[in-house]
Design a binder for these strands. Sequence first.
DNA 1: CGATAAAGAGATGTATACTGAGTAATTAGG
DNA 2: CCTAATTACTCAGTATACATCTCTTTATCG
Lengths: 161, 161
Amino acid sequence: MPLASRPGYLVRRLHQIHSAIFLEECQEFGITPVQYGLITTLLNNPGIDQVTLGGEVGIDRTNVADVLNRLSERGLVRRERSQTDRRSMVAFLTKEGEAVADKMYDSMRRAQDRFLAPLRPEFRAAFLAMVTELIEGNSKYSLPDSNSASGRRKSTADRDE
Amino acid sequence: MPLASRPGYLVRRLHQIHSAIFLEECQEFGITPVQYGLITTLLNNPGIDQVTLGGEVGIDRTNVADVLNRLSERGLVRRERSQTDRRSMVAFLTKEGEAVADKMYDSMRRAQDRFLAPLRPEFRAAFLAMVTELIEGNSKYSLPDSNSASGRRKSTADRDE
DNA sequence: CGATAAAGAGATGTATACTGAGTAATTAGG
DNA sequence: CCTAATTACTCAGTATACATCTCTTTATCG
């Protein structure tokens, strides 16, 4: 089975390529794809705790802490202990964080569009549907056990944009 | 644009999921997806130099050195200076390296199959074709400049398996 | 043939991603 | 109500991935 026909290889390259395009398109902001995912989730769910945040964005709990650290060092995110459960840290966007989320939106959209551009337009929805199918069908592997527990709080609004 | 509809998010999750399945299926060998890609490429191209190797496997040249280091510490890979170009390092699988490549093959296949399982069988080829299309259409972002130069040697056989 | 440009490899630093161990706070059971 | 289990987080360690800078080797040009 040649490398170029292995799903795993293809998916890794796809991820690599998207990261490169996103980073190029959003260069001026110095925000990575994962950081942007966290930022938009915080925008829609201010005061969310780190475990729930990781569940929403699809990253490991320790990684959430790492990324939030970098974002709060840059003044985009503010963290504090939860009032209701003092084990938890809850996170908010600062004013600057909200400004960055806003200013980056168009660049993010351009990155997504450029990534999908090689695919004939009529195939794009089908492609995304198949990817979603693969993610949902494999959902039990989608995140480590560390995040799986607990009552995955329903996200408040999902107005996104 | 909600997170779950962004191509970048979906592709990241897909990569995450495949890694988890591969790691689980190949647990007993302690070999990661990237390491296995390098090993099979070395199997088909013994004595390949590091830059060409990186081009074949789709990883950065410094990363090639890192991964080869780990593999040679475990006695799976042997490296030496090229006879023809003493700037280059060329790599070979050791006997143990070849044995591991052989023993892992079935586990790798199982990982790939499990990953694709949620997709209806008649869609799988179409999915892989679309992914390939996206990779080729975006090929200019597929690898950093550091690898792009030089005469990407034609791989000798590609008998793979 | 010697100066210099180009290429390859290495080291260093950043970011993502995950595991495992350990600590503190909360909840559940007896 | 006190102990045990669970949960949230942190810290340390490993691996991938990439950028950048330095050093050596090779190639080229005058």
